[in-house]
Design a protein around this nucleic acid. Structure first.
Lengths: 341, 341
DNA sequence: CTGTTAGCGCCTTCAA
DNA sequence: TTGAAGGCGCTAACAG
């Protein structure tokens, strides 16, 4: 089945390729005689013509492709984000190239290079860490870059995020309301804006009540389950008295904490209340259901795609960043706790 | 920042573009004098040259891009598959374009067209339904197609799957061993190979023991939570006596069943044992932890990517299909059940 | 080992 | 409204 090109279609319709090209381009159909359009369309149909987006991309300087960079495809929280992006692209004839950094700077660098080489029209990055700022800035010179979920404060790179500091405060507030005073937090990497924000908001709110947060002298190297468990184990080993409540910087880490607690014969929420972050799908079905701060992944994805589309059409656009409000979702991992006595 | 092209690099290095091209292509570095390679590399470095994969793709007729088509990005089971694909592509300089069909034929059609237009080197389809066979066959004439998870028996399209029929039998076996006799199943769409296989294997194994499976006169329109709930509700409404065990055709549907049970004041595993399918991430953490048949998503993704790569390099390759063995993962949603009396 | 030549398939001037 | 011409950036033949 030899590839049929525009030339074949044009020949069959008895017109020049340039006319065929115009006839098949919906944005230019009006420049061509209606009858000609019909003839060309028919010819294309008969030959089973399938336009070549690569050639078109080369000529037009636009690929209708967008990159989406995530840190960890294994984090179930990322699915809604990707879905939000994909669903919002679909209507515009765009498609997304997906890439994973595993939170490694070197991979981020490679991935951005690769996407730039592919001439994507824009990139959405959900995996930014402070150390990536330089390469992201460089990437920005070649294509619009939109940060999502994690941003780079002061970098001027537009971002769709959510107010992590406020989210941290909400978590603290919730624990205070339920009578906790001996409270710990398990921190995500400090070079990631979201975790910095969560830590700061949480700490601050407790300090307002004169409470000093219990923290181990380490942070998760990556925001994953294993690291949540490790930190929780460190915490349990380092303090003679376990905290009555723990704030894990994301849901995955919260599950890790749960495992560590179980390992010490402690249970949640009876002995220790646990609160996570993201409202990852399924957290409502777990044992116990996890109280969490909802980060609306689908919406973030949708808005990031929107912003990217705007930036593509208008390279001068400033790219207004946006921050969505967090919402606390109370579930049994904290509601089930009762002060003893 | 005007784009720097190969011509600029060549000029700076004092060579012809074709020489520069060869010098920068690792596969052809040997055809060029070492000193020249060094000079070209240096020039490229100095100018910040970034090759144009679009132009290269047009010329070479190869885009180093692969499509991956999924039914539902919201199904957490799909993440490991995508991850397996992505991770295995990464080393070869390939990238994946991701698209969602939502299990709609029309979307499948559009997506395949779009991927063909983009001249992807191959497509991995995890969303095949019987009705899609024609368009998939057509797609096959333009690029290698690999099915994953769901296949199209008799179509001759190579597939990486797993033995769903055996999986269904394992589920049945497990329930029998635990003393169940009044057993139901909630069926996924019949036009999807995996669900057909699961249903058949399950039914068959029970029939061998002279047990007729309880089924409602309907199947899930899509394999999602809501449909699992709907079917379970139908089941509870239609039979005076509830079954003691239910096999849901995937984990999402199992959760839907759990909700329906709870709605009737029945609990799992005390009143009804529930078994799901896929071993979706997090199913070990749910309340109750769900007994399930493990479908190794990451491996399936990895092998599908492998097969796709083989097919790309050797268009004549027959594309041997592969079927991985299922494993039953027993958890409390069935282990916790005890026959009354 | 390197340069020359000729496109890949399409789209966009420019002219008619 | 259509055709002619040129080139997007790169690379594969073919000489030399």
């Amino acid at each position: 089945m030899p590839k049929v090109t525009l030339k074949d279609v044009a020949a069959r319709a008895g017109v020049h390729t340039s006319t065929a090209s115009r006839a098949l381009d919906p944005a230019k159909g009006s420049m061509v005689h209606e009858a000609t359009v019909a003839r060309v369309r028919a010819a294309a149909e008969e030959l089973g013509y399938q336009g070549d987006a690569v050639a078109s991309g080369l000529r037009r300087g636009r690929t209708n492709t967008l990159g989406i960079v995530v840190a960890d495809l294994g984090n179930p929280f990322i699915a809604p984000v990707v879905r939000g992006v994909e669903n919002h692209l679909d209507g515009r004839g765009l498609m997304a190239l997906i890439a994973e950094t595993r939170d490694e700077h070197e991979r981020m660098n490679r991935v951005l290079r690769n996407l730039a080489a592919r001439r994507v029209d824009a990139v959405i990055v959900t995996a930014a860490r402070s150390g990536d700022e330089r390469v992201l800035r460089k990437a920005q010179q070649q294509m619009p870059v939109v940060l999502a979920v994690r941003h780079l404060p002061g970098s001027g790179i537009p971002a769709i995020t959510h107010d992590d500091e406020r989210g941290g405060r909400l978590a603290a507030e919730h624990l205070l309301e339920h009578g906790h005073r001996r409270i710990a937090q398990l921190c995500g990497p400090r070079d990631i804006s979201s975790f910095r924000g969560r830590a700061a908001g949480f700490r601050e709110r407790l300090r307002e009540e004169g409470i000093e947060v219990i923290e181990v002298d380490d942070t998760a190297r990556r925001p994953i389950l294993l690291e949540g468990r490790r930190l929780m184990e460190l915490l349990l080993a380092g303090w003679s008295e376990a905290p009555t409540a723990v704030f894990a910087h994301n849901d995955l880490m919260a599950f890790g904490a749960l495992q560590a607690l179980a390992g010490q014969g402690l249970s949640c929420p009876q002995h220790v209340a646990v609160i996570g972050y993201n409202d990852t799908p399924m957290t409502g079905f777990t044992d116990p259901p996890i109280t969490t701060v909802r980060l609306p992944g689908y919406e973030v994805g949708r808005m990031a795609a929107d912003l990217a589309a705007t930036l593509i059409d208008d390279r001068e656009h400033q790219g207004n960043s946006l921050s969505l409000p967090p919402v606390l979702v109370p579930r049994n991992s904290t509601l089930g706790w009762r002060a003893e006595g």
